[in-house]
C-alpha cells in the first residue's frame, strides 16, 4: 500500500472514530449502534496502521485480489442499510399507531372531562401548541 493511501485511510478512520465517540458522548447513538460503529472504525484504523492485516485477511479468505475485500465491506454496509430500512419502516408504523391512538384517546378524554369547546375561542385544548407556533 502506498504511503499516501495509508495516511488517507488512517485519517478517515480517525475522523470516523472521533465522530462516533462524540455521538456517544452526546447520547445520540444507542448502545448497539455505538458498538457497531466503534468496532467498524477501530477495524478501519487497524487496517490503516497495519496494511499487512488486509493482505493476511485476503490470503486467509482465498481472495486472489486483496481489493475484493472492499466488495465484502460493501456487502456489510448494504446489510446494515437494509436492516435500518426495516427498522425505520417499523418505527414509522409504530409512530403512526401512537399518534392515532393519542388522537382517539384525547377525543374520548375530552368527551368524559367536558368538551374543550367550552374553552374560549381559538384556544381549544388541542389547538394550543400549533396555533402558538403559527404566531411565532
Amino acid at each position: 500500500m502506498l504511503f499516501g493511501q495509508q495516511v488517507c485511510l488512517i485519517a478517515m478512520a480517525a475522523v470516523m472514530l472521533l465522530v462516533t465517540l462524540e455521538l456517544i458522548r452526546r447520547r445520540w447513538l444507542r448502545e448497539e449502534y455505538a458498538i457497531l460503529w466503534l468496532v467498524t472504525s477501530l477495524f478501519l484504523l487497524a487496517t490503516g496502521v497495519f496494511p499487512a492485516l488486509l493482505l493476511w485477511a485476503a490470503e486467509e479468505l482465498n481472495l486472489a485480489v486483496p481489493t475484493l475485500l472492499t466488495l465484502l465491506c460493501f456487502l456489510f454496509l448494504t446489510g446494515i442499510v437494509l436492516q435500518y430500512s426495516v427498522v425505520l419502516t417499523r418505527q414509522a408504523h409504530r409512530q403512526r399507531r401512537i399518534i392515532q391512538e393519542q388522537a382517539l384517546l384525547r377525543e374520548k378524554l375530552e368527551e368524559i372531562a367536558g368538551t374543550p369547546a367550552d374553552t374560549p375561542e381559538g384556544r381549544s385544548a388541542s389547538g394550543q401548541a400549533d396555533d402558538g407556533s403559527v404566531r411565532r
Partner: peptide, 10 residues
C-alpha cells in the same frame, strides 16, 4: 361532530 387531532402530521 367529533374533532380528532393528530399531534404531528401523518
Amino acid at each position: 361532530v367529533f374533532v380528532l387531532r393528530h399531534c404531528a402530521n401523518l
